[in-house]
Computed example of a mutant assay.
Amino acid sequence: MSSDAPLIDRFLEIMAAERGASRNTLLAYRTDLLGASEAIGGLEHADSTRLETLASLWSPLSGSTVARKASALRGFYAFLQEEGFRDDNPSAALPRPALQRPLPKILSTADVDLIFGVIAERLAVAHPSPQDWRLSAMIELLYGSGLRATELVSLPRRSLASDRPFLILRGKGGRERMVPISDRARAAVAAWSALVPEDSPWLFPSGKSHLSRIRLYQMVKDLAAAAGIRPDRVSPHVLRHAFATHLLEGGADLRALQTMLGHADIGTTQIYTHVESARLVALVNSRHPLVDLKPRSS
């Protein structure tokens, strides 16, 4: 068996927990990663030159298959770098076949109302649990500010000031951005902060560190189930997508949205215009008066 196998299995465990990846996806990724490991003599320490050889090996395959294999490796190298197994990420050397980008999963405003309804019920009791105050603060920040999961769980305890309606984040690539914080979110964070130990450096502490991304994903999915929404439809990243989509529907400027999301390229942000376009097309197809008219016979 490949020496990469233990790392690959750990990566797939995280994919299952954080992204809710299906069994078929996990099996396909495992096959792709082990196959690539065997083809180039190991992945953990491979450099970009060795990764470039995969393009010729994959040349007989369809574009969608190459895209999947490359996606598996990019995710794997991002995992290695994030977990400290590598200092660099050589995955830029992998091929990028031209494919239409899939639309992100989104939630309707009605779905979001159901989620916040569950939180409101839990906080309406005589003595709400600290876990529910924490959950309230996290969901308000995820949906109200579009934070990434890692950005949320690693927030310093004093990153939000009661008199300042924004925070400064350092996101992907070390890029700093200003994130507006709603009055609702600030109130929720203030209520939770009162329960956080004074000596904690983290807003969401857990043991000797902060809450893990995996635990956050589990909590969000449990909340979705309690709201009557299929857990596979909801994740921290889906709440980030909902934040962006609902802002755009409300008339937000695309450049402002790019800044709030921390996208280096506005092309990444433009995916949300396609989501809105798809919604409008569906609206026309279902609600336009011509829908009920029969087509003329030739």
Rank of each mutant, 00 (worst) to 15 (best):
L167K: 05
M178Y: 00
L147H: 09
G174Q: 04
P130V: 06
V179F: 06
L135R: 08
V125H: 06
S145V: 06
D111N: 11
G144S: 08
T150M: 13
A161Y: 10
D113T: 10
V125R: 10
S154M: 09
A137D: 00
L107Y: 11
R122K: 14
L141P: 04
V125T: 11
V125N: 07
F116Y: 07
A126T: 15
E121G: 07
S129Y: 11
S154N: 12
D113Y: 00
V179K: 11
W133C: 09
L147D: 09
V125W: 09
V153P: 13
L169M: 13
Q131T: 12
G117S: 02
V118H: 00
P130W: 03
I139P: 00
E176W: 06
Y143Q: 07
L107G: 06
L123P: 10
L167P: 01
R164A: 09
R170K: 13
L167H: 01
R177Q: 09
M178N: 00
S159Q: 13
H127A: 15
A120R: 13
R170F: 00
S162W: 08
L114R: 15
A110T: 14
I119L: 12
A149M: 07
S136A: 15
L135Y: 00
V112H: 02
Q131P: 00
M138P: 09
A161S: 12
E140T: 02
L135H: 01
